[in-house]
Amino acid sequence: MQIIHTIADMRRWRAENADVAIVPTMGNLHEGHISLARQARRHARRVIVSIFVNPLQFGANEDFSRYPRTLSDDCDRLREVDTDVVFAPAADTLFPHPQSYHVEPPALANELCGAFRPGHFRGVATIVLKFFNITQPCVALFGQKDYQQLAIIRGMVTDLNVPVDIVAGATVRAADGLALSSRNGFLSAPERAEAPRLYQTLNVIRDRLATGQRDFTALELAASATLAVHGWRVDYVAIRRRDLTMPASGDTDFVVLAAAHLGNTRLIDNIEVESTETL
């Protein structure tokens, strides 16, 4: 496995290797990331995992400075799954001067997580396009836990005619249902014990949709109240169509999404609901 830090070296490697998949990450890798790296091998002959904590997607009062940087440990894990390249550029390599041009996502970027993290998806889309331009992958893999991010990246690739196939990896969970996240490490022991409630609450909504309930607002408010009673500060609980538009009445394929703070840690999760479950 090669560890590459410069754009020039990355491009030289890419010029010598065809059929490449990339897994963009911010490092501090967990089994969710590793599962994407394994899955990438099924889509391409060569696999790049990028590791970069992107300042463009953090707000002024967010956790950029304390986000874990664990490059050595990350590389050890990636060697075990036969990753070809870890691309880990420094900030001044990607941003030799302040970024002047940005990808402006559509209105969806200002809803759900975007309503609470202004500019977040602008920063995500911009850095992802930079990595696509540098590495020229055929395929890119993103976790489904970041459902809104996945939708925005797919839309960007379609609208800008970027020749990259976007593949979603299923959310990987701990035994108690908590979606794996690098931010889970910020949770105290009592918070970690409470954290699975987010997934449990989404499952309650899924079960009620399956019985035919269609008062989406009531379901969202009840879920938010349940979390609040147990000490969560809820950003949103939302029931949407799979394309993240607001659901209409009647049966369809839904996704139930939530973001909430437990102590100082913001957690997100989602569950897809098939139309067959609502019959």
Score class of each variant (00 low, 15 high):
35 S>L: 04
172 V>P: 07
95 F>M: 08
69 R>E: 02
79 R>A: 15
243 D>S: 03
173 R>G: 13
235 D>C: 14
229 V>L: 09
147 Y>I: 10
252 T>I: 01
250 G>P: 01
109 A>M: 03
276 T>Q: 01
207 D>C: 05
2 Q>H: 15
124 V>Y: 04
133 N>P: 07
195 A>R: 06
127 I>D: 00
269 D>E: 08
24 P>F: 11
172 V>S: 01
129 L>V: 12
115 A>R: 06
90 A>L: 14
150 L>G: 07
52 F>Q: 04
259 A>S: 15
256 V>S: 11
179 A>W: 10
242 R>F: 00
83 T>S: 06
3 I>S: 07
125 A>F: 11
9 D>H: 15
21 A>L: 06
244 L>W: 06
8 A>N: 08
51 I>T: 06
36 L>N: 09
64 F>R: 00
184 N>C: 14
10 M>W: 10
22 I>W: 00
206 R>M: 00
121 F>C: 05
170 A>I: 08
135 T>S: 15
171 T>A: 10
51 I>S: 09
221 L>N: 03
86 V>D: 04
223 A>C: 15
199 Y>Q: 02
17 N>M: 04
214 R>V: 03
53 V>I: 13
121 F>P: 13
257 L>W: 02
201 T>S: 14
4 I>Q: 03
188 S>D: 04
154 R>A: 12
258 A>F: 02
197 R>A: 14
222 A>P: 04
185 G>K: 08
20 V>P: 14
123 G>W: 06
202 L>C: 08
1 M>R: 04
174 A>V: 07
107 A>M: 07
205 I>D: 06
273 V>P: 07
261 H>I: 04
58 F>N: 00
215 D>F: 09
224 S>Q: 10
188 S>R: 08
191 E>W: 10
84 D>P: 14
257 L>V: 15
51 I>Y: 05
254 F>E: 01
253 D>V: 09
103 V>Y: 09
83 T>M: 10
119 G>M: 05
139 V>A: 10
91 A>S: 13
131 F>C: 06
221 L>Y: 03
279 L>I: 07
27 G>H: 12
73 D>F: 05
170 A>P: 15
235 D>M: 08
74 D>P: 08
277 E>T: 09
139 V>Q: 00
64 F>K: 01
69 R>I: 11
237 V>F: 12
15 A>I: 05
18 A>T: 14
171 T>L: 02
82 D>C: 12
203 N>R: 07
10 M>Y: 12
140 A>W: 06
238 A>R: 04
226 T>Q: 08
116 F>D: 00
54 N>T: 06
92 D>L: 13
105 P>C: 10
161 N>S: 06
49 V>A: 02
269 D>F: 11
57 Q>D: 03
197 R>P: 10
162 V>L: 14
87 F>D: 05
196 P>N: 00
143 G>V: 09
205 I>P: 12
96 P>K: 04
105 P>I: 09
235 D>T: 13
80 E>N: 10
198 L>E: 01
73 D>Y: 07
32 G>S: 08
196 P>R: 00
176 D>V: 13
251 D>H: 05
94 L>A: 12
199 Y>M: 06
262 L>F: 12
213 Q>F: 09
275 S>K: 07
210 A>L: 05
24 P>N: 03
108 L>I: 10
6 T>M: 03
198 L>V: 13
142 F>R: 03
63 D>A: 10
7 I>T: 13
62 E>P: 09
278 T>R: 04
160 L>Q: 04
192 R>S: 14
241 R>V: 08
42 R>Y: 01
